[in-house]
Design a protein around this nucleic acid. Structure first.
Lengths: 349, 349
DNA sequence: TTGAAAGCGCTAACAA
DNA sequence: TTGTTAGCGCTTTCAA
């Protein structure tokens, strides 16, 4: 046999089994093998069988990078999560990932919350992968990153908040409504003197302001606010409670911007011989799994994080597959879970 | 101008700016633009400037799928995490992701812990992306998934455990050592009657067995073991404690397979009027951030999860870039953090 | 239903 | 230092 046209240049090749190998083994053209694998009802049963056999025999795994390049569809979704993983987001990421995986998509992770410069790099890295969609925890503030995303044309879903001007799609809830409703809830229970423990966080700020406004409208005494800065640790909660007891000792109920802070508040109260809720009521935010079974069980605000993840996955896949999403803004709401930590105090009855 | 060779077939094209566009704008060949971007010191200052300018002007973001396909290097690392995200792993994932990102790699997430069939699908999905490395939380048990990974030839690092037969690389610690050392620690403190609260988990099992053996060797009474099944919730801890108090009421110290279970044990103890550590000592595993500041502060076993993540990232990148990793098995150890929950009991002094 | 050709956007290999 | 050529492995387009 004369060898015909030996390539002048050798070329690497990763060595892995390719579609070509499978096609040759099955005795069909590569494109036919591709169809047998991706759209099986476009080929004859005979071809289908032969190709499947060849796939089995070779252990062929399609190269999605090549597929993505050829089809301009990466089947990749990027998720931007805060670098300080607050467990409250994990439920969302898990359901996002689960829903995507079931539909043949993969999740890429990016950590935000560093410098603006790094945020730029993160966006570059993400866009460079040409994901079919981007999930963002929170709302991207105006700036270079936002502009860049907008320019990329990639479907984006922002979450965990509401705004009239999302980049693209939005699944969230109103933090102001939470502040207001929590205040109303506590006031209905008979409390009148409040303290708030909050982390330095724009969303917590909106909850705080709404809470304060509601209290002010009813002519109740001003709310004592303990800002714990960036830290959301149990320790910060304890320190904040110490401050409350020193500077606003007549507080009857404390609303915290996270369950962990609430745990800290309760810990400090107990360490000082106070009883929750008899001496002071405590309320959290997030409903992380274990606060329901503490003693006292924590009253808190529950967000259906799983629903946010599932919906976001659907929205992004819909858009990736050419469907339109309507409405593009969804308010998933929240619920106040009443437990023992806000049972009516003895001193109020 | 006569138009020369109009292509017979039109072809989509994603519409995005490509390297070709940048190169044309800069007046150089695509490969030169590529070099200016990727290996700037291989081009003249003049070319570098022109290309950088063109990148700026166009907002060009390289297509990493194309780059990966051409170079057989995806700069993608896949991480397999348990589907029930236990916060104890988050520190590892964050430092893994951070270290990778700084070096220009991206992290892909896969959730394990479902059926063997789904595990197979997960591996397929991962291998299909041709990652440069795979991070696994835990050790992959023998089975199809393990065989497939081994066959793929992709560098793998298993973590959080030790075994003489890893797939490839391994960064972990000995669970038996933990069980033994925790037993010795508690015995040294004067305790003699023990209970263990553990989740249904192979690693927790090894800690338990080593604990029991150590106790038995010293001729102490057998350890009461409360198995809480798959659940690791605070509630399970409470239920387990209830069982301990009913079936082994003379227990002096309880070792739990997670901090959250320990929290449940302490909660139940307190709910029944018992004081920790005066009436019973409690010890956890994991050292999640907030247990240091509870009252009483929890004695626990600390694993340096961040170190595992950073090391794993280095190992995988080393291998991806052709360097050899030696040794391939690293024991990062653990430490027992002594706090108030195991302060010597009154009844023992 | 099947296949040939072309090319997605990039980089390795070789040449000047 | 710069450029030419030839693919990486797949899918789209067009044709049979």
């Amino acid at each position: 046999m004369t060898d015909k046209e030996q390539p002048k240049r050798s070329r690497r090749s990763s060595g892995a089994i390719t579609l070509r190998d499978v096609a040759m083994l099955a005795g069909v053209a590569p494109i036919t093998a591709s169809r047998a694998i991706n759209t099986p009802n476009q080929v004859s049963p005979d071809v289908l069988r032969k190709v499947q056999e060849a796939v089995q025999r070779t252990g062929y795994v399609p190269n999605r990078m090549a597929g993505g390049l050829a089809s301009s569809r990466s089947r990749l979704i990027a998720a931007v999560v805060p670098s300080t993983v607050v467990s409250v987001f994990m439920e969302t990421i898990e359901s996002l990932n689960g829903t995507l995986f079931d539909a043949g998509y993969q999740l890429m992770l990016g950590q935000s919350g560093y410098s603006a410069e790094r945020e730029e790099l993160l966006l570059e890295a993400i866009i460079g992968r040409r994901p079919d969609g981007i999930f963002i925890t929170g709302i991207l503030p105006p700036g270079k990153a936002r502009t860049r995303l907008l320019a990329s044309g990639i479907p984006v879903v922002e979450t965990w908040d509401l705004t009239p001007t999302p980049i693209d799609m939005l699944i969230g809830f109103s933090h102001s409504d939470i502040g207001r409703e929590v205040a109303q809830f506590l006031i209905r229970k008979g409390y009148t003197k409040f303290a708030i423990v909050r982390a330095e966080d724009e969303r917590a700020d909106r909850r705080t302001v709404a809470f304060q406004e509601t209290v002010a409208q009813l002519g109740l005494p001003p709310v004592f606010v303990a800002n714990v800065g960036a830290s959301r640790s149990l320790k910060s909660g304890r320190e904040a409670m110490a401050r409350i007891l020193a500077e606003a000792p007549d507080s009857q109920a404390v609303f915290c911007s996270s369950d962990l802070l609430a745990l800290g508040v309760m810990t400090e109260a107990r360490a000082r011989g106070l009883t929750v809720p008899d001496d002071i009521a405590v309320m959290g935010f997030g409903d992380v799994p274990f606060v329901a079974d503490m003693v006292p069980a924590l009253t808190t605000v529950r967000i259906n994080g799983g629903q946010i993840g599932t919906l976001a996955a659907r929205f992004l896949m819909d858009r990736a597959e050419g469907r339109t999403v309507d409405p593009r803004i969804v308010d998933v709401g929240f619920s106040i879970i009443e437990r023992d930590s806000t049972a009516l105090a003895k001193t109020l009855t």
